[in-house]
Write a protein that binds this DNA or RNA. Structure first.
Lengths: 219, 219
DNA sequence: CAAGAACCGTACCGTACGGTACCTGCAAGG
DNA sequence: CCTTGCAGGTACCGTACGGTACGGTTCTTG
């Protein structure tokens, strides 16, 4: 999930080091703690270098988003044949990964930052964040449910709508609650199983897919 | 949905007027636009009065949340007998109301404010917002699906889990996207129908409930 | 009418931010 | 050796905020 992203033409190693410190400050203290002076002090660089490298504070924030996105990679899915069992497996893995990404410290901090700015900057950072942070995971999920349909294991008319159903079943209001400061789930895997069971009940082609959907589960 | 909330022991009419202006400033310009000087100017009051009434800026924000919550009321559900048809009707009405509330200007602005603060204040406003803003609508939904279960129209073990499933089907990632600055849905009613169809497929006791669930729908 | 409270408008203070300018150290290259 | 460019350190500037103080005005109350 996290690893080297191959080429990083965006920034020099020194700049990446500074961006890492910036993310640390943001995670620890919110956007008020991410000041140019504070970052210069924490990263042992000068404010002048910050402005030379990133232009202004907005440029710094955009660079932080790009830097973080460059660290997150999704598996390139193997081309194995899809069986009902490993479709379910892949869906559950996706669900667990999604929950883990959304509840990560840096993800939450960047989302809080973008949400806070979106009220006044015309949602510039919101777009950036959705673009960089979600495109990968969206495409992975779309490819998966598309393959499920081609293999005759899933049934739906609109892949986009089906994906959003899956997303809603997995996340519900958890993301917003975490953004508001609530702790995450104590068992992501359980939630992943519940969501996939429900999804297969709605869009699977085998009746017994959802046999366990009515088992109870605390949040 | 919106109406007089009976007694409002919290604040005087003059203070409510000021809070209304504060909400307007917040909606129009985000939290940076909500300054004590700006509010005093916009509301034709003095900064000294603001501090006398609300203590400090945090007290003002808390008062704004309480003020807004006092304006939102949910219907007290009538005690009519539940049929499959009007259960579906009530669920769809709930879904439409939920989408409408979440996409409201003031709701979004307050949520953005609370999210922005939650990084550094220990989620004080997040808790306040969830408490004041969601308790009403949560209880309404829980009462509804509970009645559905008692009437033999719904089946589930854990009402809380079922409610979160319903919530996820209705909202998906829409709330976060709107917080990030994306526009809302162009047709809330369509999304409400889709979500309720899916919910009844999962938890309804009649097979034909979900017959239309696979109809496509753009986002 | 007089006394007092409540409130408005404004001036003011300390602070902290974003952003700029200047100086120093240092390593590369002739 | 000297020069050139890059980056760190620091002082500085203008601005805007939260919060306080004070004089003047209106409204209530006895």
């Amino acid at each position: 999930m996290i690893g080297d992203a191959g080429q990083m033409p965006e920034f020099t190693p020194r700049q990446n080091e500074v961006l890492e410190q910036a993310l640390r400050l943001l995670v620890e203290g919110g956007d008020r703690a991410l000041t140019t002076s504070g970052l210069a002090r924490a990263a042992n660089c000068s404010k002048e270098s910050l402005y030379k490298w990133f232009g202004d504070r907005d440029g710094l924030l955009a660079a932080m988003i790009a830097h973080q996105a460059s660290k997150v990679r999704t598996y390139e899915r193997g081309k194995e044949k899809l069986t009902p069992e490993n479709l379910r497996e892949h869906l559950e893995t996706f669900a667990r990964d999604l929950l883990e990404v959304l509840s990560g410290d840096i993800s939450l901090a960047l989302n809080r930052l973008a949400v806070g700015q979106s009220g006044r900057d015309g949602s510039k950072f919101g777009k950036l964040l959705l673009e960089h942070g979600r495109r990968q995971i969206d495409r992975r999920a779309m490819a998966l449910i598309d393959a499920g349909k081609r293999a005759g294991l899933l049934r739906f008319d609109d892949a986009d709508a089906a994906y959003h159903t899956l997303y809603g079943l997995i996340v519900s209001d958890l993301h917003v609650r975490m953004l508001l400061g609530e702790p995450g789930l104590k068992d992501n895997a359980r939630q992943a199983r519940r969501a996939v069971n429900a999804f297969l009940t709605l869009h699977g082609t085998r009746q017994e897919s959802g046999e366990a959907v009515r088992f109870s589960s605390g949040r």
